[in-house]
Structure formats: C-alpha cells, structure tokens
Amino acid sequence: MEFIVASSVGALTAAGIYLILRLRAFASILGLALLSYAVNVFLFASGRLAVDMPPILSKYGNGGYTDPLPQALVLTAIVISFGMTAVLVMVALGAYLESDDDRIDMDGDDMVGEGDAT
C-alpha cells in the first residue's frame, strides 16, 4: 500500500513538473493542479497510512485512530489550493484576453530595458 501511495505521489509530481515547464498558461495550470494533488497526498501520507481507522472517536471502534493532524491541515490546503488555482485561472484568462496570447515566457520586447528603472 505504501508503495501505491508513494508511486502515485511521484507520478503526480513528475507530471505536474513536466506541465509547469511547458510554455502555455493552460498547461501550467494543469501542472499546478497535479502538483497540488501530489502535495496534498504527500502531506496526508506524513500521518502514515491506516485502513479503517478514521479519526472519529467512537465507543464501538477497534480503538485505533489514524493521525488527525495532517488531515486537518490537508483539508484546508485543498480548499486554499482551489482558491489559488482560481486566481491563477483568472490571471491567465486576463493575460490572454489582454494580449491575445497565453504564452508565459516574456519576449525580448516585454523585458525592462537598460535605464528604464531610473
């Protein structure tokens, strides 16, 4: 089981990194989404894996509970990463609509030239 989770995290990370290295905004957004899956699962896994031991206190359970703390942190992380994805989507959309282009690397013309910053 540990191998399943670890390999999933690895695959999601690799796919996410490959996509954020592409040149278009949409691919980067996909990549970031994959990366946030990977990070969330990674953080979750730091509480170690357990089957049938949800952290819901109960008189009838088998008495064991998995680590609740990473779960609480990941829960908010999921919601926050949704918020950040939404902001990025909007930035990408805005950039595309304003410039007619959704490439993320700056061209030579867009760079700040010598002496502009004075």
């Binding site: 540990e2 989770v5 670890a6 690895g10 990370t13 690799a14 490959y18 730091s46 170690r48």
Partner: peptide
C-alpha cells in the same frame, strides 16, 4: 523537461516511501 520531472517525481516518491515506513 521530462528528465527533470522524472528526477523530481522520483525523489518525492522515494521520500514519501521512506518516511511512510518509519515512525
């Protein structure tokens, strides 16, 4: 890019695997 991604992904996966086996 693929090589970079695989290296990083492999590293993260290995790290996750390593700590999941330890208390």
């Amino acid at each position: 890019d693929g090589a970079i991604a695989l290296a990083a992904g492999g590293g993260v996966g290995a790290l996750a695997y390593a700590f999941m086996l330890r208390d």
